[in-house]
Amino acid sequence: MARKQTIIPGVDKRLLIKDAAKLLPDPSRRWFLRGASLGALTLLTGCDIVDSDAAEGVLRRISTFNDRAQAWLFNPNTLAPEYAESRITRPFPFNGYYAEDEAPEIDGKTYKLEVGGLIDNKEPWTLDRLSALPQVSQITRHICVEGWSAIGSWQGVRLSEFLQRIGADTRAKYVWFQCAEGYSNTVDMATALHPQTQLSFKFDNQILPRKYGFPMKCRMPTKLGFKNPKYITAIYVQNNDAGGYWENQGYNWHSGL
């Protein structure tokens, strides 16, 4: 699993560039399907026949269809495989669209988790109160959208347990996460209620280090890595899909494993 040519272990150079490109004006970063990117089809047809806006629209619709196919395939009782402690990948890679030293620094003493949407009790949660919730542990495989994988160990409270405690309406469609670095995404309620979906406060039985999302990440072994938010500052239960950082750029929304 040695991945070469990356600036920072676990960070894809292309994605960094992609992220930097976001700072450019809109037309200049619409290279999604243009020019050289059409290499194979251009070779095939001898000319650039694909209208990129039309192609992008079709691909997005198929991606939405794939969301439904994956929701259908998702079995709420199927557990992700768990591994022995000896299988844990050490060091576990840091991964983000920013460098490790740019990761958010959160003061655990003043931290408050905001909760909202279709819930009964909207009182914010301190880290002490969160850490006092019943804890579970898992050693599961984190699979990145890039293809690599790593086995990690997480401890925390089941999200389903937490949702019950805040009186969430679990008939709602989505759980939305807002994170300190500006990251956000939504997941389907079925995944949020999965027994292995966990609000994690610890990695490998140590307080979650900054690089892995201190003070809290949401570990979902049934989803690709980027669907597992870190540095969570707010959780909302809602019926509208508020999108997500990567999903808005074209990653498949469901991204279930």
């Binding site: 070469k4 894809d12 994605l15 992609k18 399907l33 290499g39 691909l59 959208v145 890039e146 990567w246």
Partner: peptide, 29 residues
């Protein structure tokens, strides 16, 4: 190219999708 198995990458002139997200959309369509 996003996570190579061997010590080489494919030139972007012969790949489809432009970036990982675009390529995944093509692949899963």
């Amino acid at each position: 190219n996003a996570s190579q198995l061997f010590g080489f990458t494919y030139s972007s002139s012969i790949t489809l999708g432009g970036w990982l997200g675009g390529a995944l959309q093509w692949h899963f369509a």
